[in-house]
């Protein structure tokens, strides 16, 4: 019975805490809450992730990954379908910054573009599981459907030459003669 009583009291404590937090949040205008745009990332992680993503898809005359909203895509999914990858991102991003400090004495986001490219190449070699994850997610965000937060204004689709939405008419209901039915 000990365990079940613990269960109840824990639940109650959690409940009260949650209620208090909710009330406080409402009362002070959610200032305790994440004020950024991110559902999961903190600002530091977002800066590092931006640096990595923008090496995977850099800007040329079309936007870079982050300019096209890839971080929004990744962040939204880390709070949803990609919850299972949260630890990989936490660990991977902090280890990327650790590598950056070790080699250059600065955060990754503060490095020059060529230094960032070198560092991403190093991550690809030394932490390939994390790199492959970020690479897949970056390319999904950049080349996938805009509804998920990336590929803003379908810019990558227009880059490869596909109009979006496609201009496509439909058959008229009274058009066809001799139709089988």
């Amino acid at each position: 019975m000990q365990s079940s009583r613990d269960g109840v009291s824990l639940t109650r404590r959690q409940f009260v805490a949650a209620g208090a937090m909710g009330g406080a949040a409402l009362a002070v205008g959610c200032t305790g809450h994440n004020q950024g745009d991110w559902d999961f990332l903190n600002d530091e992680q977002a800066r590092t992730l931006t640096a990595i993503c923008d090496q995977i898809v850099p800007a040329d005359d079309f936007p870079s990954a982050s300019q096209a909203g890839v971080l929004t895509y990744i962040d939204r999914q880390l709070a949803r379908h990609y919850r299972r990858h949260r630890n990989a991102y936490r660990d991977g991003l902090s280890s990327a910054d650790a590598m950056s400090w070790q080699r250059h004495g600065r955060d990754m986001a503060a490095l020059s573009a060529p230094q960032q490219a070198q560092l991403v190449a190093a991550i690809e070699k030394e932490n390939s599981a994390f790199f492959n994850l970020v690479r897949s997610h970056t390319l999904e965000g950049y080349y996938g459907a805009p509804r998920h937060g990336g590929n803003r204004d379908a810019v990558s689709w227009r880059m490869v030459g596909m109009g979006e939405p496609p201009v496509r008419g439909r058959a008229q209901y009274d058009e066809r003669k001799g139709a089988a039915s």
């Binding site: 090496q55 995977i56 898809v57 850099p58 040329d60 079309f62 490219a117 991403v120 690809e124 690479r135 970056t138 080349y143 990558s156 880059m159 490869v160 030459g161 596909m162």
Partner: peptide, 16 residues
Amino acid sequence: PRWGLAHKKAMRSFYK
């Protein structure tokens, strides 16, 4: 290459 400008340019050159 699997990433970087060369990958982006290849997408652009070869998609169609």
